[in-house]
Write a protein that binds this DNA or RNA. Sequence first.
DNA 1: AAGTGGTCTAGACCACCAT
DNA 2: TGGTGGTCTAGACCACTTA
Lengths: 269, 269
Amino acid sequence: MDETQDTETQSMAQKGRVHRRALSAVFGDGSRPLYKEVKLALTRLLSSGDVGPGEAIPTEKQLCEQFGVSIGTIRKAIDELVAERVLVRQQGRGTFLVSHTPERMLNRFWRIVGRNGAREIPIVQTLTFKRSVADDAIAAALGIAKGDAVFSIVNLQLLGGAPVVLDEIILPHAAFPNLTEQGLRTRDTTMYGYYQEAFGVNIINVFDKLSAIKADKFVAEHLSVKVGEPILKVQRIACTFDNQPVELRYSQIQTENYEYHNTMGMQST
Amino acid sequence: MDETQDTETQSMAQKGRVHRRALSAVFGDGSRPLYKEVKLALTRLLSSGDVGPGEAIPTEKQLCEQFGVSIGTIRKAIDELVAERVLVRQQGRGTFLVSHTPERMLNRFWRIVGRNGAREIPIVQTLTFKRSVADDAIAAALGIAKGDAVFSIVNLQLLGGAPVVLDEIILPHAAFPNLTEQGLRTRDTTMYGYYQEAFGVNIINVFDKLSAIKADKFVAEHLSVKVGEPILKVQRIACTFDNQPVELRYSQIQTENYEYHNTMGMQST
DNA sequence: AAGTGGTCTAGACCACCAT
DNA sequence: TGGTGGTCTAGACCACTTA
């Protein structure tokens, strides 16, 4: 009996190794763990648009068969994408690509919170929309070449009926090929939701740099403050998969009644 | 042969269930997953001081035996603590409680970065140290009662030889019972490293609220700016396990040459 | 060489959701 | 009822560190 068991476990392990080699041949050079290969394949599935926002990826069992690996390996790949907040699991239903709805945005990339702690969805007014070309700073931030075509958008954001944030948003033409002022104005979702739905651009990560500056005349007029008043300036680079930058944004924020919140780490459970 | 296998797997599953019940009786009400119980036990191990900063926790195999659970369950518990950056794994060596060395702090809770992107370790000068009592705002932020004893510290931080950050730090007496000005001044590590080494207080998570204000006279003098110049103000609440607040800090930052950096999400791999 | 964490297997049962 | 993800087992072998 003991003998039987040993032989079995032995053969199971062997099988595992064989699978690994076979898959390496299919997926890569074999130097990457299997679950990373699976993760990469899932990432491609998502970024290719085969799975749209809010849609389910194949079930864990299906993925097992598709990739010829154990369910534990599939789960580890999905675990990482869940940790990166690309996917969300729902017990009994499936695993889904996150959809950038206004409600979800509120707790994800939106950092402006009332001094009383209230989070609210801003009303966005597009002030200007124009085509332009990248200068050195824009090219460096977006990882494109100087002179490449970009869109330049100025948005005013209202909170509690008052103007609080003035944004200048620069988008590379290459990632948003058919963007029009009309499309932008008539969207019925957040900016990031629009990127996702209309262009298949999923914002996965953002990098913010904050500083305090004086309000210039343009800002002062739109945010109803005096010239020279302190303003919170945020430079944001928003990235899609592989941390590829797809949006550069300069926000100027009037922080009399609102603050920028940043929580590091995760809530323990 | 098939029969043998079926009987075995059956008995394995049964054994698993028995274990679960037995442990539930030991650890809790059974409504919590086993790995959460293990995680909680590990957290207690760390917060009790049985494992000091930089020290190794028991090996995965030891924990298996100690808790009577499978290695996969232990790993899932450790996985979460690693994700929360409480533990760090080192293949071939062990799993360790993070130590808040200056180098590690630089990429964890320290957010002030030069405009050229350079991170540097600040030089800290303690300007004042006094005992005080909590007012309403402090009591609310630290989760203590109004009138409770606190320490109030003012630090000036130099970067590149120039004063950049002025901190007011409020610490509850209860969490730092024997704190003295002498001890604070003669520490040879970061503030958070000092909390950890001298008081067993591990900072796990911080919450920052940022706004732009005008420099007052006190700040202007210490940061070498004019009164009224824009200053980046950060209110930070630093927490230990279970998000229990143990430090309240008001930082005022001169952002001419430095910025506050915030990276959301994690870097994909 | 011995010991650590890292990867992976091939399932089982449970909790939950939809129909 | 059937299908989903959530938890858990009892190992195996690999990669790496330390002595």
